[in-house]
Design a protein around this nucleic acid. Structure first.
Length: 1038
RNA sequence: GGGUUCAUAGCUCAGUUGGUUAGAGCGUUACGUUGACAUCGUAAAGGUCAGAGGUUCAAAUCCUCUUGGACCCACCA
């Protein structure tokens, strides 16, 4: 069978189909790698659900996938676990911004919690599915069946479990502390979420009053309305006599300020006035001083709305910070209290998401205590975070994390030293709600949370007509089934444990349709049924009511006589049902399919609503109402904390939450700790530090054995890619133009770990050209082969060229394997590139056109090359492989090197040297390379070589070898080439000069006694050899 | 203030523990379309490895300093 391939490789034609083949093969899932034993697990850094794939993702995916494909081929149980991050602040900020654009000025106020969350959920789901498809486009071989989302059920459970554990260990506390506050975002943010920008400011040096002995300086005069102390250095002779004294000053605040003079080593005698005005409420550093000197007190003068509070005094209350600043400065001026006023540059902290100036404000928030000794550990979180890089976790050598490049360790350690308690509560709504409830003032963290998802049956014909159905067994309307399926899809991600439905047909039927998707436990329960009791069903209300004489007496709460059930009886029935749940399904997630009146009863019980509100409640079909039962208690007495958790709290748990923790799953046992982690240096503190914190604490282990840090991509001008700069490149567009393989190769070739790299289209173009070269190499071999089959054993070499190429190939296998084991992607790709294009295509394939009968060897080299290249450029290699073998290249085994002779390298090198010398001569004399000229070669040393390789020389250099000596001769070391071209005398002289200089260089070395005494023997021998052939050459040239 | 990092050909970068006359791609120049490939071939030009000093038999590589750029952390009263 003749194989036909297109003249050029068109990525678009193959990539989607190939990815589909891989995915359907099931081998992305390590469970299907039956022969593999040793696990190799990598967690994908989960992309945020705020946008689309950018170049950074493309880089990460290229690196991750190259690594995992290599490991898979090496026989590991390779798992690349994909995920996505709900990215709390980032996502909410994005959606709010878009809503504002569409005219909703204050989304939180106008929509309310539930509706805004619904909008964000919608946006994030869209964004998630887009970005996941784009990750498929990158060729990433991750196990989609294990996909994890930081905000899904399993991950939420991990977050809640972790929170509870840390709270019980006293590591999480609720405290009143100064926090970073974004007025625009109306939320706290951590120290790491600030970006600092230099801005011009005015520094005012002033005195609180004329009597006050110490002048102080500030860039934030308005905060001085809340000063409670002045700190001076105890060694400062000017001021130390005042230490401990209190001064009362009136600066216009609500109450006169009592300023205590305190001692603090941090006050620099030589800087400014040498004294620091202390505003505990509005400065992190000052707050720490307050903690050491609680007696000085704390007066907040700025509120969460960014306006001055009552404490600031009547003149200032309600003013913005800037207005207050101006007014206070004016007051100081009027009273001649300003001593100096100077302009300066100041770096101002801003919120990276909301881009407004951060105010430091004291608040009651949740914190993680990083200094507290962990019960039973005798160490703080800070110490745990350091240990993994120094002594190893629990002092074990094996539990030291290897970081590449290790220079990042320095800044990590420095960061840990400066770490303050981590504020984890946020006032935004998109995120894990803090799993804490309050009963009055008491904090309550339940052991088990039973979750009820209440929904109604699907629509029946009777519903359509507005009839009361009561105990009838009306079936579902055919048209409504698709709506129920939609509902089922929504529920799929919620990890429901059991479905309980009313026994009535319409509910049972609904449950069955849903369970076709969920495939979980399903039971029916009589307590959930609807009786002939439809008096609150809306449009029939009046009619029904009028049937009963009691209605006139007691307008709302009345009993219905006869067989029908009263409202109170329904409530009783549901209370009984809840008892049943608590007894049998405590801690589970339960989907309840029931009827309107029953749903209402749930509402009344769970929310503790008054009976008079009953008729106002209606659950629409298709809607879900969620309730939590906390340790079997009725939720109506408990109020959940309204705040959410910092998104990095859930990210910190990533390496184990993705593997099913807190359950002791098979995955967790097999794959944790993970083998390799990869991330950009910009999230080292955000993410790596937090993963280490969480894992060492909760799992008592390291999260990963190795972490590989990559740099960021920059434009040709060295700028960051960003939408706002308008210089961003869309990876998807690049893929469409050049193919995924070209993009991947251009991202990986020429990068060093931890270093930034410039990226531009020409690089992709170069990679694309290479891809095409590889295609054509394959095309030539496959099309000109007598047969195509899998060559399992290295064929026996026959000629020198065979020996040479196999030697080169085996060296390549060795170096590629060695380098990939230490994640040296760039170097490996360059070595492969060089071999493929230069050694294989330019030399060996050309030789194969002269020396026939290389079918098997060519196929063998091609197959080996496809394997070696596969981790980098999976699509084209798999596409070509399809023509060779029916099994997937993806799971073929990584090549092993064979023994080969090494001495052929010198011989073949000489052959190349001869050919290049002749080509060069022709070029210099403007003779078409293809023109065959006569040539005579003499060499004592390489006589045999030349005789044996006449064919190759004649064909690659396009010469005819003759016995006739021409007058003109070219010398290269140990070989004389006589040709019918007049040799340029100047060239000859130049060559002589160069050779002499070279000889001098070596002689100088060899004459140096220290060199001959101390250098290793093989180095000296080598120098001697070099000298000898240089002399020979010089002799001939003369 | 503490720390990290970069400077190698016109451009973008490799150069693994010090050891051939320092490499690649792009670009440039010259020549070339015979059946794998013009997304190509053949060859050439182009570098005092930022500067100075040191360690060493030997330095682009290790150390110190200088110059110029990038970055991180803290402080910024």
């Amino acid at each position: 069978m003749k194989i036909e391939l297109d003249k050029t490789y068109e990525a678009k034609k193959f990539e989607d189909e190939i990815y589909k083949t891989w995915e359907e093969s099931g081998f992305f899932n390590p469970d299907n790698l039956k022969n593999a034993k040793k696990p190799y697990c990598i967690l994908m850094p989960p992309p945020n659900v705020t946008g689309i794939l950018h170049l950074g993702h493309a880089l990460e995916n290229s690196i991750l996938d190259t690594e995992i494909r290599f490991r898979r081929m090496c026989g590991y149980k390779a798992l690349l676990l994909p995920g996505a991050d709900h990215a709390a602040v980032a996502t909410q900020a994005r959606v709010e911004k878009e809503l504002q654009k569409s005219g909703i000025k204050n989304p939180r106020e106008e929509l309310g919690r539930e509706k805004l969350l619904e909008k964000i959920r919608e946006y994030s789901e869209n964004s998630k599915s887009t970005i996941l498809n784009q990750i498929r486009k990158m060729g990433t071989s991750c196990d989609w069946s294990r996909f994890a989302y930081t905000f899904d059920e399993t991950r939420s459970r991990a977050v809640n479990t972790l929170f509870k554990k840390m709270y019980e260990d006293g590591l999480i506390y609720k405290g009143y502390r100064a926090v970073n506050w974004t007025v625009r975002g109306q939320s706290t943010c951590s120290d790491d979420e600030l970006i600092y920008e230099d801005e011009p400011v005015t520094i005012y040096t002033f005195k609180y009053s004329h009597d006050f002995p110490i002048p102080i300086a500030t860039t934030r005069p308005e905060t001085k309305l809340g000063d409670t102390a002045v700190a001076v250095n105890p060694k400062d002779d000017r001021y130390n006599k005042y230490i401990g004294q209190k001064f009362t000053v009136s600066v216009g605040a609500l109450n006169p300020l009592t300023i205590t003079i305190i001692a603090d080593e941090n006050a620099d005698i030589n800087y400014g006035t040498g004294a620091v005005g202390v505003t505990p409420a509005h400065s992190m550093v000052d707050f720490e001083m307050y903690q050491k000197n609680k007696e000085i007190g704390i007066i907040p003068v700025i509120g969460p709305d960014g306006k001055m509070t009552e404490n600031a005094g009547k003149n200032y209350e309600g003013l913005t910070v800037l207005e207050a600043r101006e007014k206070f400065v004016n007051w100081l001026k009027e009273n001649n209290l300003i001593i100096k006023q100077e302009e300066s540059i100041h770096s101002v902290g801003k919120s990276d998401r909301f881009n407004d100036v951060i105010e430091v404000i004291p608040m009651k928030q949740w914190f993680i205590d990083v200094n507290k000794i962990i019960p039973g550990k005798n160490k703080s979180l800070k110490q745990l975070m350091k240990d993994v890089f120094t002594t190893g976790h629990n002092g074990k050598n094996k539990k030291i994390i290897k970081i590449t490049p290790d220079r990042f360790l320095n800044s990590y350690m420095q960061w840990i030293d400066n770490l303050r308690d981590w504020c984890i509560s946020r006032q935004i709504w998109w995120g894990h709600r803090i799993p804490v409830w309050y009963r009055g003032d008491k904090i309550f963290i339940p052991k088990t949370i039973t979750e009820l998802y209440i929904t109604r049956h699907g629509i029946t014909d009777w519903n359509k007509e507005g009839k009361i159905q009561g105990t009838t067994d009306t079936p579902l309307d055919e048209d409504s089934i698709s709506n129920i399926e939609l509902l089922a899809n929504k529920l799929k991600n919620e990890k429901i444990d059991i479905i309980i439905s009313s026994t009535q047909k319409r509910a049972r039927q609904t449950a069955e349709i849903i369970n076709q998707k969920l495939k979980i436990k399903f039971e029916t329960n009589e307590l959930l049924i609807e009786r002939n009791y439809g008096d609150f069903e809306g449009q029939n209300l009046e009619k029904v009511k009028m049937k009963y004489p009691e209605y006139k007496k007691d307008k709302i709460n009345f009993d219905i006589p006869g067989e029908e059930e009263t409202y109170k009886e329904v409530k009783k029935r549901i209370e009984e049902f809840i008892k049943y749940i608590n007894k049998n399904y405590s801690g589970k997630k339960i989907l309840i399919i029931t009827h309107n009146a029953v749903a209402r009863a749930f509402y009344m019980i769970m929310k503790g609503a008054k009976d008079t509100e009953a008729s106002k409640y209606k659950l629409q079909q298709g809607e879900i109402e969620k309730y939590c039962i906390l340790d079997g208690n009725n939720p109506k007495d408990y109020k959940q904390d309204p705040d959410t958790l910092d998104t990095w709290f859930s990210s910190g748990a990533w390496t184990f939450s993705t593997l099913g923790w807190p359950d002791k799953t098979k995955d967790f046992k097999k794959f944790h700790p993970t083998q390799w982690m990869q991330m950009g240096y910009e999230i080292l503190f955000f993410w790596m530090a937090r993963m280490i914190l969480m894992t060492t604490y909760a799992i008592d282990d390291i999260p990963f054995e190795e972490v590989y840090i990559h740099g960021i991509l920059r434009s040709k001008e060295g700028k960051k890619f960003s939408k706002s700069l308008g210089n961003s490149l869309d990876p998807i567009e690049i893929i469409q133009n050049y193919g995924t393989d070209a993009l991947r190769l251009s991202l990986i070739k020429g990068i060093a770990p931890g270093n930034d790299a410039k990226f531009y289209e020409e690089k992709v173009l170069g990679a694309r050209n290479f891809i095409n070269k590889l295609w054509n190499i394959s095309r030539y071999i496959l099309m000109s082969s007598d047969y195509v089959k899998l060559i399992k054993k290295q064929p026996r070499p026959i000629t020198l060229a065979d020996e040479w190429i196999l030697r080169k190939l085996n060296t390549l296998i060795e170096s590629a394997t060695k380098d990939l084991k230490v994640h040296n992607f760039s170097m490996t790709s360059e070595a492969l590139y060089d071999f493929t294009w230069t050694d294989f295509a330019d030399w060996y394939i050309e030789i194969s056109k002269v020396e026939k009968g290389k079918n098997e060897i060519l196929l063998y080299i091609l197959q080996t090359l496809l394997k070696l290249w596969h981790p980098f450029i999976p699509f084209i290699t798999e596409t070509i492989w399809k023509n060779i073998d029916s099994r997937l290249l993806m799971i073929s085994s990584w090549p092993k090197s064979n023994k080969t002779k090494s001495d052929v390298l010198i011989e073949f090198g000489k052959l190349q040297e001869i050919i290049i010398a002749i080509r060069n001569l022709k070029n210099e004399h403007k003779i078409d390379l293809k023109t065959i000229i006569d040539c005579h070669i003499e060499s004592e040393k390489y006589f045999e070589l030349i005789v044996n390789q006449i064919g190759i020389i004649e064909s690659l250099a396009k010469v005819k070898l003759t016995n006739e000596k021409y007058k003109d001769v070219v010398h290269i070391s140990d070989v004389d080439i006589y040709i019918e071209i007049t040799i340029n005398e100047a060239d000859k002289q130049k060559q002589i000069r160069e050779t002499i200089a070279y000889i001098n260089l070596i002689e100088e070395k060899l004459n140096n006694k220290k060199f001959t005494q101390r250098a290793p023997e093989h180095i000296i021998d080598n120098e001697k050899k070099k000298l000898k052939s240089a002399y020979d050459l010089l002799e001939k040239l003369k």
